[in-house]
């Protein structure tokens, strides 16, 4: 979706302001939100693509004015409501007042913690041969999916070069909508700064994205 989360190239957000000796969490509730998202994901309530999509679908003014973990909280609530794991009545009461739904992997317990600390595997067996190889010129398609996609707006319609092939990975565009993993080839595609930003761009910059095969066409 063409949401405010897709920020590459936007103006007006000001300087980057690193915080010296930044703590891991600024408020304790942030750590609880992080842990709840990890736990409910590991228990099978949703996948990582759905959790990203629900944060992206927050209204733009909410997205832009909420702290990072506040966005995580709002996205988690909306996702659990939509999937039927919690109900509005529970939220209103501040307690569970409705029946629970079964979780794919069951209750998340202390024994499951080490599992969430190891990164998930997203590589999958290739369903077809790769259409592109390193060195190929490709154009990022001018597409505007209304749902989740990992093709940023700033590359759409622009020509780049395939640099690496990462094998086949879970396709976020379908996985986010319960439409299956539908594994796709994934490539690093490099764009010249002037191709993306015009003749006034700094000529020394090159920008790459990791692009799933359906995002690309030969150029």
């Amino acid at each position: 979706m063409n949401g405010v989360h897709d920020m590459g190239g936007m103006d007006g957000f000001g300087k980057v302001e690193p915080e010296p000796n930044e703590p891991m969490f600024h408020e304790e509730w942030e750590s609880r939100v992080l842990a709840m998202v990890r736990a409910m994901g590991a228990a099978g309530a949703f996948n990582i693509d759905a959790s990203r999509f629900y944060r992206e679908t927050l209204p733009p003014h909410v997205y832009l004015s909420s702290s990072y973990y506040r966005k995580w909280l709002l996205g988690l609530e909306a996702l659990l409501l939509d999937k039927g794991f919690i109900a509005q009545d529970d939220m209103a009461a501040g307690h569970s007042v409705t029946p629970a739904s079964p979780l794919k992997h069951g209750k998340f317990s202390v024994a499951d913690v080490e599992r969430v600390m190891v990164r998930g595997k997203f590589g999958r067996t290739a369903p077809a041969l790769a259409k592109f190889k390193a060195g190929d010129r490709v154009r990022a398609k001018n597409i505007h999916p209304a749902t989740h996609t990992r093709l940023p707006r700033y590359v759409r319609g622009h020509i780049g070069v395939v640099e690496r092939d990462h094998g086949c990975h879970v396709f976020p565009d379908t996985a986010a909508n319960d439409a299956g993993e539908r594994p796709q080839w994934l490539y690093t595609v490099v764009f010249d700064g002037r191709e993306l930003w015009g003749p006034d761009s700094d000529p020394t910059i090159k920008v790459s994205i990791d692009a799933f095969e359906p995002y690309l066409e030969p150029a």
Partner: peptide
Amino acid sequence: ETELRVRALESILSEKGYLEPAALDAIV
């Protein structure tokens, strides 16, 4: 308001048997 929402959500998830609060402590 945010802290209250976070606590409420944790209570709901725990009461429904989806997760153990101690597992959240362990993740953090």
